[in-house]
Simulated scan of single mutants.
Amino acid sequence: MQAAPNSQMHRHLFSRFPKFTSHDAEEVRHQVSRIFCDHDLRVVGKSQALNTQIHFRQGKRVSYGRMLYGATVDIEPGNLDDFYLIQIPVAGQEAIQYNRHAILSNTRVATIISPDLEFRMRHERNAEKLFIRVERSAFEQQCAQYYGHLAHGALHFNPAIHLQHPSLQSLKRLLDWQLYEASEGDLFDQPLVAARFEEVLMMSLLGSLQHNQPSHFDTGHIAPGFIKRAEDYIKHHAHLPLTAGDIADQVGVSIRTLFAGFRKYRNTSPMRFLKQIRLEQVRHELLHPKSDTAVTHVALSWGFTHLGQFSADYQQQFGELPSETLKRSGG
């Protein structure tokens, strides 16, 4: 695993994903609206000129990027409607105002803007930020799966993220790593892996940040038939980028109920069961190789990205290394 970026490296992330560069205010407003939402944009002061740069890597449910305006600007989007926006300044600062409150966001204080929050912000001339766009439908589905339902209407976060707070250090490390990997690595090119990373990000935000959903719930009674249906679904869909939320949604329970059921009746977790099924599929391909079959390619195609851990898990389950299976099969 690559090391997380330091503060200087942050300012070069997503350089291989250029979206646009412009000095024209109307073009900037139009192009930014295509990534985010329609908004009013005003350059503060007649002596300033825009030098806007945006780098953007689009994903299925989560997208990543870096941007700067090159001038002090006032931005009034109203609200975002269909996505959550995480903003992490890497230089300078921006002020965000909402509901008679204000947040001064800088390298120590990030923000998460919920879709229904009406806000405006001033982005200072020397400000540059990383951002993460999470689709609303995916995030609220994840929340409903995680807690069993949305108890208090739409999911709404407290906007301020104090990155130096001791309770948020695990989340900060996760954000650093995901941003770096999305920028510099190739794991996000694997659909199975990208889906898991998106789910981990959403669940980590739910578990770490303040929001309006309850943190307690009743797991209720779980029947063995429910577990069997989940197992059958996993077996028949292991080739897809399954997440715990997908499985829970398919059988009609929350993620915690799903995990509690597998723990009680199978002494494992649904994701470990999925890994076991995928290991069996890898073994099947290695036992019936084609002329170009390679262990690394087969492992990656089934979602195993940490090859050392994959080999150890494979050996523990089957009593031999994957390379030994392929060699024994004539591959």
Rank of each mutant, 00 (worst) to 15 (best):
Y147D: 07
Y147C: 03
G148N: 08
G148I: 05
H149V: 13
H149S: 11
H149L: 06
H149K: 09
L150H: 08
A151K: 08
H152S: 11
H152R: 12
H152Q: 14
G153Q: 06
G153M: 10
G153Y: 13
G153C: 04
A154Q: 12
A154L: 07
A154M: 10
L155H: 12
L155D: 05
L155A: 06
F157E: 00
N158M: 02
N158Q: 13
P159W: 07
P159E: 00
A160V: 09
I161Y: 00
I161W: 03
I161M: 09
Q164T: 07
H165T: 05
P166A: 01
P166S: 01
S167W: 05
S167G: 02
S167L: 09
L168V: 08
L168S: 09
L168C: 01
Q169P: 08
Q169R: 15
Q169L: 11
S170Q: 10
S170P: 00
L171V: 05
L171H: 01
L171D: 03
K172D: 04
K172Y: 07
R173S: 15
L174T: 10
L174C: 06
L174K: 10
L174R: 07
L175D: 00
D176E: 11
D176T: 02
W177Q: 14
W177M: 13
Q178L: 15
Q178G: 12
Q178D: 02
Q178V: 14
L179K: 08
E181H: 12
E181Q: 09
A182Q: 02
S183E: 06
S183C: 10
S183N: 11
E184G: 14
E184F: 11
G185I: 10
D186V: 13
L187R: 14
L187Y: 06
D189V: 11
P191M: 01
P191K: 02
L192G: 13
L192Y: 01
L192H: 01
V193G: 02
V193W: 10
A194C: 08
A195H: 01
F197E: 13
F197Y: 15
F197T: 08
F197H: 13
E199R: 07
V200C: 01
V200A: 07
L201R: 00
M202H: 05
M203A: 07
S204N: 14
S204L: 05
S204Y: 06
L205K: 03
L205Q: 03
G207E: 09
S208L: 14
S208H: 08
L209H: 02
L209D: 02
Q210S: 11
Q210Y: 00
Q210F: 00
Q210H: 07
Q210C: 09
H211K: 02
H211W: 00
H211E: 01
H211Q: 04
N212T: 08
N212L: 11
